[in-house]
Design a protein around this nucleic acid. Structure first.
Lengths: 337, 337
DNA sequence: TGATATGATGAAAGCGCTTCAAACTAACCA
DNA sequence: TGGTTAGTTTGAAGCGCTTTCATCATATCA
């Protein structure tokens, strides 16, 4: 059996209270006593039981992370970011992927209800504002990633609008494309909407229009870009450039164009959003917008830790609660450069 | 504050022991009493505290998963697999990525030392056999994924040899390539060695040789395939086919070949291993070997749970402790098909 | 009718830690 | 010399559960 604090106390000839103070660097302990305790800890290879500690102190040194069930390397980057922030602070990371169950059965809510975590990071999941509110009201800090529910909750977002603008300007101003089409992601997600808004704004500012038939619906997933592109290719006036809401669809769109006997970028330019590793390997290499995914995760984890450590200190909550991380266009070949 | 078992007991007019029995479906409880307790639980929105429960019962309903720090979508699949196995059994998943710290500081060892998890899954990390032994001796079941330390520990591996053979035969027998080169992964990993062994065997069986200069060293990572291929291209007699230890390097090798003014697969065929999503998008689409990564994770999680539930039942440990999951060649274009 | 199962519940002892009031010690001051 | 005080340490009460053992009805049998 593993050694307990009791064993350490006995060996060092002190009470468990003293051992606890040594472990936690609390109050003052006589240097000699401290050394004796530390020696006993070494001798017994003692490691404090995390559960007992959590129960007694009401702190678990654990962060909860909820991600969608989708199989997307995107989220792995978020996971890595949060994990590294957590482990650098000696916190553990408890992961839950959002299940398809109805809200009443959502397991991830148990994470906090059961006192399992000190804070939660929710990444691009479907969640109701009142659910989040409930968590926060129970005293568990929540940080959101790529997900905005419009309450006063710390939120980390990639700058979708800014990235979308930069890309749109690249197409419209530098390349002088005149008929730009857009393949949407899932309609309700804010990232998709921001990217579309950016394109529309840039077009307007340049005296151009985004006709309804140039906005075709996709869902971010494989194939949907292909089908969307097919619809565009049936139009009487073909676009000269296509902005897809993510790389996956952009790549599928390129396929559709090629199968249609046209060339990318000579006949139709194609650009995406995300900068998947994949983007640089397709041919032509995809021009896209880089998203700081790892950084989103890292900052979110960091923020969660900060809030934990300033609990009750209301002034801390006055910090900006919506942070945009910069996105940057990655110019390759598919735009015509 | 969240309701405790005490609150529920008071509201239902019973003792906490009875509430506990209802929660855990233990012993028998009078149907009427049970209903009264359940109603109180609903009324108070009670959720048992996981820490207290874990402390009292010495079971945490949590699985620990350790992955390398590498940034590889491969591991995300493993994570997903384990996570789904865990959550289907109402277990949580605690993740730790292996840090670069010296063994004495390896945080993930704390996961179990501190009584945090009921079992651990170690995935392709660097670990010493005696460390694993120590964990097991403390009564924490361990399951390995893509990692073989040669002890009597349940291990899930992709069938690297089988997949390597199938691919090698495709090259040598069907395509009749005569000069096949191999770009290695990190030398010490068993997967790499198995794949190489398979190629060598098939060549020998067909009266062919694998000359030393046709085995060039890579490290699985980006660029290393490119450099390895450059070395191959400097040889007096060029290979007619190249087998790379993974897709990433295969793709880089294709680039090097093209930059050298040669064509894939007409001048030199290239195949990989892994079947990254990426593989189907490059041009020509990469012929490779599919690895059941998600399944590896899922089975490992499942096995960990099984061992937990049959603890002490020695007969269970007689089950096969080394499981090969089948890999399958995915024939695309880069092999010449 | 009294002895004996059987079913249902309660009471209390932990699980391994944190934390806080209280106690002890030695040193200092008036 | 008694009273302070600052520095250390102890002891014990939880934290919210599980689990064992004892208890108490009620039903069963000879």
């Amino acid at each position: 059996m593993a050694a307990t604090i009791f064993d350490v106390a006995k060996r060092a000839g002190v009470s468990i209270g003293t051992v606890s103070r040594v472990i936690n660097n609390r109050d003052r302990v006589h240097p000699e006593t401290r050394e004796r305790v530390l020696q006993a800890i070494r001798d017994l290879d003692y490691h404090a039981n995390a559960l007992a500690r959590g129960l007694a102190s009401q702190q678990t040194a654990t962060l909860g992370l909820v991600i969608p069930q989708v199989n997307d390397p995107f989220f792995f980057q978020v996971v890595r970011g949060v994990e590294e922030a957590a482990s650098a602070a000696n916190y553990s990371l408890l992961i839950a992927s959002q299940s398809r169950l109805p809200a009443s059965e959502r397991r991830y809510l148990h994470l906090f209800r059961r006192g399992h975590v000190d804070a939660m990071v929710l990444a691009s999941i479907e969640v109701h504002a009142h659910e989040v509110q409930e968590i926060v009201e129970q005293g568990i800090p929540v940080v959101l990633v790529q997900l905005d529910i419009g309450r006063n909750i710390p939120t980390f977002l990639a700058d979708n609008y800014g990235g979308g603008r930069a890309m749109a300007e690249h197409l419209v101003v530098e390349h002088q494309y005149r008929r730009v089409a857009y393949i949407t992601g899932t309609d309700h997600t804010p990232d998709n909407r921001e990217r579309l808004r950016a394109l529309r704004d840039v077009l307007h500012e340049n005296g151009l229009d985004l006709p309804g038939e140039y906005v075709v619906e996709g869902d971010y997933l494989r194939d949907s870009g292909y089908r969307a592109m097919q619809r565009l290719l049936e139009l009487p006036t073909l676009p000269d450039a296509v902005f897809a809401a993510n790389d996956q669809m952009a790549i599928d769109a390129m396929m559709a164009i090629r199968e249609h006997g046209l060339s990318v970028p000579d006949d139709i330019a194609v650009v995406g959003f995300d900068d998947l590793p994949l983007a640089s390997y397709v041919s032509p290499p995809l021009t896209t917008v880089h998203q700081p995914v790892y950084e989103l995760g890292w900052h979110a984890g960091q923020m969660a830790l900060e809030i934990i450590h300033t609990q009750g200190d209301r002034s801390a909550l006055a910090a900006p609660n919506k942070l945009l991380l910069p996105t940057s266009p990655v110019i390759r070949r598919s735009c015509g450069c």
